[in-house]
Design a protein around this nucleic acid. Structure first.
Length: 484
RNA sequence: GGCCUUAUGGUCAAGCGGUUAAGACGUCACCCUCUCAAGGUGAAAUCACGAGUUCGAUUCUCGUUAAGGCUACCA
């Protein structure tokens, strides 16, 4: 049986775009679902874009998301090297083969881009004018001998059509006349992506190419290349684009202006890799089930090209938040504490001292780890709040009623030496029982008085504990003064 | 401009000729509850438009419109 081999072929650009990561994920899931191999290949043929440390970012991302590759520059494999710049000689060799077989030609035009430049009001000309397509052998030899700079271009048939099959989009046919004689080998001797991916996918025995659908337009040219070489093309699976929502409601390709778009940025914002993977797995693919929480193992089990969606998906940070909050809640306590460490710097010494308890409040309520930094800011933001907050109809409380409770609580709390959440809860419960009221009624004035806010991430006793005895009493006293 | 692709609620999406058109996020109620969060229940909200084909179209075909991609010595 045919071995399934997929590849993830990122350019070392310095960051991992979330759309790119999704492509990697799908390629990984597809391969693993079929017990195949997932290969990492670094496409660094554009030397101008080389970024220091960029490959490490790719390795890190793959490691953090657990998309473990079976072959790649760092782990080796039978089809290396896995870095395109190290395969330079290979491409030249194959490009020349194509020249010999009449499927490509040398082009000595200096800069076609400039030649084709135009004024805005002039009708635009498109593509290369094929100036060198029919140069005589002698002319080519002469130019070569003179050491003229050249590129090798694909000799695309002038008529007829080319058809390829995509697993998602079906058969796609284009007129060859709409295809340009694209550059295969650049003047610096490096191949273009368009050429390298064909050679490498074949040489590395890639069975299924999974990539973004921006390559659909180029695929006919790849098809022609495979045919010229006499190779069987791999299956192709083109993926929809991940979009971002613009302020005006329109959408466009997800980019910086929509928010964090790189995996590293998302992680820094406090999203867990597992949550990110879970969320993006469902952006453009559906397991056709009602649940949405899946581990990587489950995704491998369930992955099926049948569920891949053709339409572009808008990245929704709100939904990512939801996934993330669930994953954070599920985190074992130790793990949460460890991850939280990076976000506690801005916390007050007071909160840090009570972190053992305070962290539980965070874990059950935050959407992303970065929210920890300012989670307790409200405690310090204590001003002369509107005394109407003491009125609460559900508890049948007015200012006078609150004042009474506050006075009692002040006296009770003043003599309390065991300032723990449990004890505080206990004594307030005892007080409520004694007064024949529900604990909620007794807690209301306390919680409001001590925080000055109706909404707090925790109950009255918890707020008292976090504030500490001195500050709590001080605030209660102040409220009593104001209410008198 | 040319070529290619796509079109179900605000968002992710199920559906693959006959359905009260799933489910999730978000929103809004209500319940629970010392507030919030979590949890529970419920509500509002979708087949872009126009022609066909068919007994019957969200589903098939064609057009329109809109959106996206390609049209680089970037990938």
């Amino acid at each position: 049986m045919e071995e399934i081999r997929t590849r993830f072929a990122p350019s070392p650009t310095g960051y991992m775009h979330i759309g790119n990561l999704r492509t990697a994920l799908y390629a990984f899931l597809y391969a693993k679902h079929h017990n195949g191999k997932f290969i990492l290949r670094i496409e660094d043929t554009d030397q101008k874009r080389y970024v220091e440390g960029a490959t490490e970012i790719i390795y890190d991302t793959l490691k953090q998301t657990k998309l473990i590759h079976d072959e790649g520059p760092d782990v080796g494999g039978d089809y290396g090297p896995y870095v395109q710049s190290e395969r330079k000689a290979l491409y030249k060799e194959y490009a020349e083969k194509l020249v010999q077989s009449g499927h490509a030609y040398y082009c000595f035009c200096s800069n076609t881009h400039e030649e084709n430049s135009h004024e805005d009001d002039e009708p635009q000309t498109y593509g290369y004018n094929r100036h060198c397509r029919n140069l005589s052998k002698e002319e080519v030899e002469k130019n070569l001998k003179e050491g003229k700079s050249y590129v090798i271009r694909q000799k695309v048939p002038l008529d007829g059509t080319t058809t390829f099959h995509d697993e998602i989009y079906g058969d796609i046919t284009v007129e060859n006349s709409s295809l340009d004689d694209q550059i295969l080998l650049k003047s610096d001797g490096m191949p273009t992506y368009n050429f390298a991916n064909v050679v490498d996918d074949h040489l590395m025995k890639i069975s299924d190419v999974i990539r973004g659908k921006e390559y659909i337009s180029s695929t006919p040219k790849y098809q022609l290349l495979y045919e010229a070489f006499g190779w069987t093309p791999p299956r192709t699976i083109h993926l929809s684009t991940i979009m971002g929502q613009n302020p005006d409601g329109t959408v466009s390709k997800l980019s910086k202006r929509h928010g964090a778009v790189s995996f590293a940025q998302l992680v820094q914002d406090g999203y867990l890799p597992e949550a990110i993977i879970n969320y993006i797995s469902l952006l453009g693919w559906s397991p056709k089930q009602e649940r949405e929480i899946f581990s990587l193992e489950e995704l491998i089990e369930l992955f099926d090209v049948n569920g891949i969606i053709k339409t572009d998906a808008v990245f929704d940070y709100k939904k990512l938040d939801w996934f993330n909050s669930l994953y954070i809640k599920e985190l074992p306590r130790e793990k949460f504490l460890e991850l939280a460490k990076d976000y506690t710097n801005e916390l007050s010494e007071d909160i840090k001292g009570k972190w053992d308890f305070a962290s539980t409040l965070c874990q059950s309520r935050i959407n992303k780890l970065s929210e920890i930094s300012h989670f307790f800011d409200f405690l310090d933001d204590y001003q002369d709040f509107d005394l109407a907050l003491f009125e609460n109809k559900k508890n049948k409380l007015d200012k006078a009623g609150s004042l009474d409770i506050l006075k009692d609580m002040y006296n009770i709390l003043k003599s309390e030496s065991n300032w723990s959440v449990e004890k505080l809860n206990q004594i307030i419960q005892d007080y409520a029982t004694e007064k024949g009221m529900k604990i909620g009624k007794a807690m209301w004035p306390v919680r409001i008085g001590v925080t000055g806010q109706t909404v707090t991430p925790g109950g009255g006793a918890e707020m008292l504990y976090l504030l500490g005895k001195d500050k709590s009493l001080e605030r209660i006293e102040k409220c009593i003064q104001r209410l008198l």
